[in-house]
Simulated assay, not measured.
Amino acid sequence: EQVHSACPSAGTSMPPATMEPGTTPWSTGLFDCAEDHGVCLLGWCCPCIVVGRMAEILDKGETSTGAGAALYMAIGVLSGWQCQWIYSCVYRTKMRAQYGLQETPCPDCCVHFCWLESCAICQEYRELRNRGFVMDIGWHANVELQRQQGHSDGSIVPPATQHMI
């Protein structure tokens, strides 16, 4: 996997051996907010909540939603809202590594910096939700939900998704 020097590495794990890195298309497009007004509104008005929820899921519970949201907010406030995109970019890179997602339409940091930050985080939030995560209950509750649905090992087994072209 190519690492872009403009974006800090997140120490991501490799996707499962059956998944080729960077070959899976995103389940929604970068500008598909019109299809999901609730996520769009949350991403534009309270991006710290969106990033915090994603951080908890992608870090498998090691980062709480509150801690992820607070860190995003702190970076934004301390940088005059000029550098918070770096934190969210780390999670886009991590998500792509975990799920073998394509690096489109451009490198991760360009998506967050050059494109609209809110569109990027909304796309990432939708991707996790489309992979079977209930975004507002956190990692541990998602694991418990999966266990109750018959996945006794506690692993998250997202449903197959239809990919938009």
Rank of each mutant, 00 (worst) to 15 (best):
V39K: 10
E1V: 10
I49D: 02
A69C: 00
D108G: 15
C106G: 10
F113M: 02
V111K: 01
G68D: 03
D36G: 11
Q98E: 10
N142R: 02
T28W: 14
F31A: 03
G132K: 06
F113R: 11
V39F: 06
L78T: 11
G61C: 02
W81C: 05
E127W: 07
D36Q: 13
C110V: 11
Y91D: 01
G80E: 04
G38M: 15
P25D: 09
P158E: 01
Q102W: 06
K60L: 04
F113W: 11
I49H: 01
C122L: 02
K60Q: 07
V157R: 13
L145V: 03
D59W: 14
L78M: 09
C40W: 12
H4Y: 15
E127T: 10
V134F: 06
V111I: 11
C48D: 05
A10N: 08
A120R: 02
K60F: 05
G132C: 07
V50A: 10
L58E: 06
E1Q: 06
N130T: 04
R147A: 10
C114P: 00
G22T: 11
L101Q: 06
T63L: 02
S27L: 05
Q123C: 09
G80N: 04
P158R: 03
D32G: 09
S88Q: 13
A10S: 14
E1L: 10
G22C: 15
G43A: 15
N130I: 02
A141T: 03
G76P: 02
G43H: 08
A34P: 00
P105V: 14
C45A: 13
W115S: 03
G22F: 03
C89S: 15
H37K: 14
H112C: 13
P25Q: 06
A69S: 04
E56G: 00
E62K: 06
M73F: 14
P159I: 03
Y72M: 04
L41H: 11
H163G: 07
C114K: 01
C48E: 07
Q102E: 13
V134A: 09
T93L: 09
E124K: 01
T93M: 06
W81N: 07
A34Q: 06
Q82K: 03
T18I: 01
V3L: 14
P8D: 07
W85Y: 14
T24R: 09
C7V: 14
F31S: 05
A69F: 02
E35M: 10
V3M: 12
I57Y: 04
T23N: 09
S118G: 01
L128H: 05
G68E: 02
G100Y: 00
E124M: 10
P16F: 00
D59I: 01
